[in-house]
Computed example of a mutant assay.
Amino acid sequence: MIDIPAGELVLDGRRTRVEGFLLAAFPVTREQYLSVCGEVPAGPQKPGVPVTEVSWLDAVRFCDELSRAEGFTPCYTPGTSPDAEDTAADGTSGGYRLPTEAEWEHACRAGTSGVRYGDLDAIAWYRGNSGGEVHDAGTREPNAWGLHDMIGNVWEWCWDLYDPKVYGPYRVFRGGGAHDRSWSCQASARRKSHPTFRIDDLGFRVARSHTLGR
């Protein structure tokens, strides 16, 4: 886990404060997902690639299972709604969780202000260099804070609702994937889908708040 400093950014036209937090240096891999959950979704049979074909609800369940495995109090209280409208979060629990959208972009930028934190071919697997497949995590250059694959390889689920007044329960994902053109692989690029949505270039990485909660 990388210690991300506090900071500010403009998100959706609003200046937003981000407190310091912890974020995984890599997206969750198939090997990690299997070790925690005992099974892994369909996808490339390579243990080091980011896990894909995972829904937002799958990612939330993984976070809670990983918290239990490491002795932390789970962050989430799952509900019964397939729309995840009754899933509750306690960010002070000390458990693993999904980053918020503001946390994700702040961490991705790592103090930079451009469309991305480096040369696209050097930092990301995208349509121009991926050969149409997701690659092992951590095989492109990291950003200044040591985070790999924040842009390209796989999109990453965030906690936030996209725009509940317009899109209801749809959740945000960020970062661009191995099948995307350059304009989708930017620090500010946003997409959305239903929390049960699964696809072959959408994964996640885990965060933790600065707390010793157990």
Rank of each mutant, 00 (worst) to 15 (best):
residue 45 Q to P: 03
residue 45 Q to R: 15
residue 46 K to N: 14
residue 47 P to N: 07
residue 48 G to A: 15
residue 49 V to Q: 11
residue 49 V to C: 12
residue 49 V to Y: 09
residue 49 V to H: 11
residue 50 P to H: 13
residue 50 P to L: 12
residue 51 V to Q: 10
residue 51 V to H: 09
residue 52 T to A: 14
residue 53 E to C: 08
residue 53 E to D: 14
residue 54 V to D: 05
residue 54 V to R: 03
residue 55 S to N: 09
residue 56 W to D: 03
residue 56 W to S: 04
residue 56 W to G: 03
residue 58 D to W: 07
residue 59 A to C: 15
residue 59 A to L: 01
residue 59 A to K: 00
residue 60 V to P: 03
residue 61 R to E: 15
residue 61 R to L: 13
residue 61 R to M: 10
residue 62 F to N: 10
residue 62 F to R: 05
residue 64 D to S: 15
residue 64 D to R: 12
residue 65 E to S: 12
residue 66 L to F: 04
residue 66 L to D: 07
residue 68 R to I: 04
residue 69 A to N: 01
residue 69 A to S: 13
residue 70 E to Y: 04
residue 71 G to A: 12
residue 71 G to R: 11
residue 72 F to A: 14
residue 74 P to E: 06
residue 74 P to N: 05
residue 75 C to W: 03
residue 75 C to Y: 02
residue 75 C to K: 01
residue 76 Y to E: 09
residue 78 P to N: 05
residue 78 P to T: 14
residue 79 G to Q: 10
residue 79 G to W: 06
residue 79 G to S: 09
residue 80 T to Q: 13
residue 80 T to D: 14
residue 82 P to M: 08
residue 83 D to T: 14
residue 84 A to Q: 05
residue 84 A to P: 01
residue 85 E to S: 13
residue 85 E to H: 02
residue 86 D to A: 12
residue 86 D to F: 09
residue 87 T to V: 15
residue 87 T to C: 15
residue 89 A to Q: 10
residue 89 A to H: 06
residue 90 D to T: 07
residue 90 D to R: 12
residue 92 T to S: 15
residue 93 S to Y: 08
residue 93 S to V: 05
residue 93 S to T: 05
residue 94 G to F: 08
residue 94 G to T: 11
residue 96 Y to S: 09
residue 96 Y to N: 08
residue 98 L to C: 05
residue 100 T to I: 02
residue 100 T to G: 09
residue 100 T to A: 01
residue 101 E to A: 14
residue 102 A to C: 02
residue 102 A to G: 00
residue 103 E to I: 01
residue 105 E to Y: 01
residue 106 H to V: 02
residue 106 H to S: 03
residue 106 H to D: 02
residue 107 A to I: 00
residue 107 A to C: 01
residue 107 A to Q: 01
residue 108 C to V: 04
residue 109 R to D: 03
residue 110 A to P: 01
residue 110 A to R: 07
residue 110 A to T: 00
residue 111 G to C: 06
residue 112 T to P: 02
residue 114 G to Q: 07
residue 115 V to R: 12
residue 115 V to M: 11
residue 116 R to C: 13
residue 118 G to D: 12
residue 118 G to L: 11
residue 119 D to G: 09
residue 119 D to K: 11
residue 120 L to M: 07
residue 120 L to A: 11
residue 122 A to W: 00
residue 122 A to Q: 15
residue 122 A to P: 00
residue 122 A to T: 13
